[in-house]
Amino acid sequence: MSRVYKAIIGAADKFVPAKLRPLWEHDAGPKTIFFWAPAFKWGLVMAGLGDLNRPVETLSIPQSASLAATGIIWSRYSLVIIPKNYSLFAVNVFVAITSLYQIGRAIKYEQSLKNKESKQ
């Protein structure tokens, strides 16, 4: 760990209440990357939710598919590593769900375009 990170954790350590101490000291707690990586990955979920209002013709199926695959793969991984990382599992499930929903929207849109073309 870097000196800066150790200094920040050492300073914060004094202010952690006794009731939160088990979470603070956990193998996947705030003192580790196992906590911070999933915390920042929620930004992808927020971006995916923001894309729900995006026009469907601007969605990228390959991009959504890669995000969905990543979410599924990392969801599985988060349950087989030690320590099990349930926050990583949760964020990746949401990444997969939002991406799969976007794929569904895009495919439905493409099907509607094909139906319009075939009727003309």
Score class of each variant (00 low, 15 high):
residue 23 L to T: 13
residue 2 S to R: 07
residue 5 Y to C: 01
residue 56 V to P: 00
residue 8 I to V: 13
residue 50 G to S: 06
residue 17 P to Q: 00
residue 1 M to C: 08
residue 30 P to K: 00
residue 85 N to H: 00
residue 90 A to E: 01
residue 69 A to E: 12
residue 98 T to P: 00
residue 43 G to A: 13
residue 26 H to D: 11
residue 12 A to H: 10
residue 51 D to P: 02
residue 103 I to C: 05
residue 7 A to L: 07
residue 53 N to C: 08
residue 73 I to A: 05
residue 95 V to R: 02
residue 63 Q to W: 10
residue 60 S to T: 13
residue 6 K to G: 13
residue 87 S to R: 02
residue 40 F to Y: 09
residue 16 V to Q: 12
residue 31 K to Y: 09
residue 35 F to E: 02
residue 37 A to H: 09
residue 73 I to K: 01
residue 45 V to Y: 03
residue 117 E to R: 15
residue 42 W to S: 01
residue 34 F to G: 14
residue 120 Q to L: 05
residue 70 T to G: 15
residue 107 I to E: 14
residue 114 K to Y: 10
residue 116 K to R: 10
residue 9 I to R: 13
residue 67 L to Q: 13
residue 35 F to C: 01
residue 88 L to E: 15
residue 66 S to K: 14
residue 31 K to A: 08
residue 58 T to V: 04
residue 15 F to E: 15
residue 36 W to M: 05
residue 26 H to C: 00
residue 91 V to T: 09
residue 91 V to D: 07
residue 89 F to L: 10
residue 97 I to N: 06
residue 74 W to K: 00
residue 84 K to H: 04
residue 103 I to F: 04
residue 44 L to R: 05
residue 59 L to R: 14
residue 90 A to Y: 02
residue 12 A to R: 05
residue 9 I to A: 14
residue 116 K to A: 15
residue 116 K to Y: 08
residue 69 A to I: 07
residue 20 L to V: 07
residue 81 I to N: 01
residue 81 I to G: 01
residue 66 S to H: 14
residue 18 A to N: 04
residue 57 E to L: 06
residue 57 E to R: 11
residue 8 I to R: 06
residue 57 E to G: 13
residue 105 R to V: 08
residue 9 I to G: 11
residue 44 L to I: 11
residue 19 K to S: 10
residue 33 I to Q: 11
residue 9 I to C: 10
residue 115 N to P: 03
residue 22 P to A: 00
residue 2 S to M: 03
residue 58 T to Q: 12
residue 14 K to V: 06
residue 27 D to T: 14
residue 30 P to R: 02
residue 8 I to F: 15
residue 114 K to R: 07
residue 11 A to N: 03
residue 89 F to C: 02
residue 118 S to I: 05
residue 77 Y to K: 01
residue 57 E to C: 10
residue 15 F to W: 14
residue 91 V to L: 07
residue 33 I to W: 14
residue 109 Y to A: 09
residue 12 A to F: 12
residue 6 K to H: 12
residue 97 I to Y: 12
residue 103 I to R: 03
residue 110 E to G: 07
residue 101 Y to Q: 04
residue 86 Y to F: 14
residue 17 P to V: 01
residue 7 A to C: 10
residue 87 S to C: 00
residue 33 I to N: 05
residue 97 I to M: 13
residue 68 A to W: 03
residue 62 P to A: 08
residue 85 N to T: 01
residue 117 E to V: 11
residue 58 T to S: 13
residue 58 T to Y: 14
residue 7 A to D: 15
residue 99 S to P: 08
residue 17 P to Y: 03
residue 114 K to N: 12
residue 44 L to T: 12
residue 27 D to M: 10
residue 72 I to A: 04
residue 92 N to L: 09
residue 2 S to W: 03
residue 42 W to F: 06
residue 4 V to K: 15
residue 20 L to G: 12
residue 37 A to G: 00
residue 5 Y to E: 09
residue 80 V to T: 07
residue 88 L to G: 05
residue 51 D to Q: 12
residue 65 A to R: 07
residue 33 I to S: 14
residue 1 M to H: 13
residue 19 K to A: 08
residue 74 W to N: 04
residue 19 K to L: 03
